[in-house]
Simulated assay, not measured.
Amino acid sequence: MIQRIQSIWLFLAAITLALMLFLPIATKVGSGTEVAIYTTGLRETFIGKSGNGFKVAFYLPLLITNIAVAFICLMNIFNYKRRSFQKRIAIVSIILIAGFAFWCSVYAKKLPGGIEGANFGVGAYLPALAILFVFLAIFGINKDERLIRSAERLR
């Protein structure tokens, strides 16, 4: 059923991954500038100004990966009729999210001066939250399968 709890968990995972587009992964303050890394790229803001920021680098592969993983989680909601396939796609999306988180950490090391002294933003913790949501969706799928099996035994 599309109204089941796993649909909510998969939707929350997709929203969490979409939020990574707007929230910084890591920020570093130094020499009158604040440099923040997003999944869209490296953004530099001058301290003391009115917050005028400009992109230093644009990370297109990371952006495409972020959108693709969020889209996979969102489209997996509509596989409700094929629960085993939905579970397999959820497991694949966990692996993809873990790889995406590792890739974000590799890009975070590209901060000027390295990652030492950097403050991790909310975006650094969102992949772990998305993995948690997908795990909860898998538990919901398993619960549905047990319910279907018990209903078939009663027939």
Results as ranks from 00 to 15, higher is better:
Leu154Thr: 06
Val29Ile: 12
Leu63His: 12
Tyr59Met: 07
Ile72Ser: 10
Phe11Ser: 12
Asn66Gln: 14
Tyr125Met: 01
Gly113Ala: 05
Lys49Ser: 15
Ala151Asp: 14
Ser50Leu: 11
Ala101Gly: 12
Leu129Phe: 14
Gln6Pro: 12
Gly99Pro: 11
Pro61Ser: 06
Phe54Lys: 13
Ala137Pro: 09
Arg83Asp: 04
Ile94Gly: 11
Leu129Gln: 07
Ala101Ile: 03
Thr16Glu: 10
Phe58Tyr: 14
Tyr38Asn: 02
Lys87Cys: 07
Phe100Gly: 02
Lys81Ala: 08
Pro61Asp: 05
Ile94Phe: 06
Lys55Leu: 13
Ala108Gly: 05
Tyr107Phe: 13
Phe78Tyr: 13
Thr16Ile: 09
Leu96Gln: 04
Met75Thr: 15
Gly30Phe: 02
Thr45Ile: 08
Ala98Gly: 06
Leu21Val: 13
Gly53Ser: 14
Leu60Lys: 11
Tyr59Lys: 02
Leu154Met: 07
Ala137Asp: 08
Tyr80Leu: 02
Leu96Lys: 00
Arg149Pro: 05
Ile131Pro: 10
Tyr125Asp: 00
Ala108Val: 02
Gln3Ile: 08
Ile15Phe: 13
Ile131Trp: 05
Arg88Trp: 12
Ile77Trp: 02
Lys143Gly: 00
Gly41Asp: 07
Thr40Tyr: 05
Glu34Asn: 06
Phe46Ile: 07
Gly99Val: 06
Lys28Tyr: 09
Gly48Met: 03
Ser31Val: 11
Ala101Cys: 04
Arg88Gln: 10
Leu19Asn: 09
Tyr80Arg: 02
Ala57Pro: 03
Leu17Thr: 02
Phe85Ser: 15
Ala98Pro: 00
Trp9Leu: 12
Arg149Trp: 02
Val29Ser: 11
Leu111Phe: 04
Ile148Asn: 05
Ile2Gly: 10
Gln6Ser: 12
Lys143Ser: 08
Glu145Tyr: 00
Ile115Val: 15
Arg83Val: 05
Phe22Leu: 10
Ile25Tyr: 07
Lys110Gly: 03
Met75Gln: 10
Phe120Asn: 00
Phe11Ile: 09
Trp9Ala: 06
Ile95Arg: 00
Glu145Ser: 00
Leu126Cys: 08
Phe71Asn: 08
Phe71Pro: 03
Arg153Gly: 13
Gly41His: 09
Leu23Met: 11
Lys143Ala: 07
Gly117Cys: 01
Asn76Val: 01
Thr65Pro: 00
Lys28Asp: 07
Ala128Cys: 06
Leu21Thr: 13
Val29Ala: 08
Phe102Ala: 12
Cys73Phe: 04
Phe85Asp: 11
Leu63Val: 09
Ile37Cys: 04
Asn142Val: 00
Cys73Ala: 15
Leu74His: 04
Arg155His: 04
Ile95Glu: 08
Val122His: 02
Ala90Asp: 09
Gly121Tyr: 04
Gly99Trp: 07
Ala68Gly: 12
Leu42Thr: 03
Ile77Lys: 04
Val35Ser: 01
